[in-house]
Amino acid sequence: MPGDATARPYERGPYRPVPQVDTATAVRRAEQGTVAAAARGLTKTYGLGDVRVPALRGVDLDLPRGRFTAIMGPSGSGKSTLMHCLAGLDRPDGGTVAVAGIELTSLDDDALTIFRREHVGFVFQAFNLLPMLTAAENILLPLELGGQRVDDAARERARMLAEILGVADRLGHRPAELSGGQQQRVAIARALITRPDLLFADEPTGNLDSATSTEVLDHLRRSAHELGQTVVMVTHDRDAAAYADHVVTMRDGRIV
């Protein structure tokens, strides 16, 4: 039922590898082109008085569902701030954000936390993984935090994701024992485990060499194209942005 806002675009169920596309993915693909998240008139200012820094000065943005969108712009232009507001990590001073039909600015902290848990996945530039947990534990962490029983199906799905991302043989290792690229791929697996509506990646390749970057970006693109996953990536790297279907450019807190 494309367009039906109440229908969950995906159901939890055993994950099957990419070629045999499951129904959820089929639904997502069908939904490609609709809007996954929308921001209207977003403003955000840091600091007070003389040191006021307007980081967002009225941003309107629609993120197409099932696509890979890149947000580009020079350093300090407000990319990270925008992403934080879209992902429910921070609150804008003004404007609205709607994701999966949910108005984020009306949620309290707990509701926002649960929203993130259920609808959003993250990959950051660095420090993505908890150092005291193994890679597998890190991947399963969002499910655990959601209070779900980590059953064999979930474990199997984690293993599948790890396999797709090429880190299946490192699942028992702790982050300190993984390379930067491996850490990022584990982080992508973790972001995908909950089948989120939106996957945000803030400079996911900032710390990686070009070969590893290519791998990570490729995975992100494949998850959009093959799994129908909506992906938003923040970067100031033109080459990275080239992997995206859409590029949104920011300057001085505005989209240009």
Partner: peptide, 16 residues
């Protein structure tokens, strides 16, 4: 701090 932020981003509530 960063770990906690990460956990909170992944869906751990304040109370949690």
């Amino acid at each position: 701090v960063r770990e906690h932020a990460l956990l909170r981003a992944l869906g751990l509530t304040r109370a949690g």
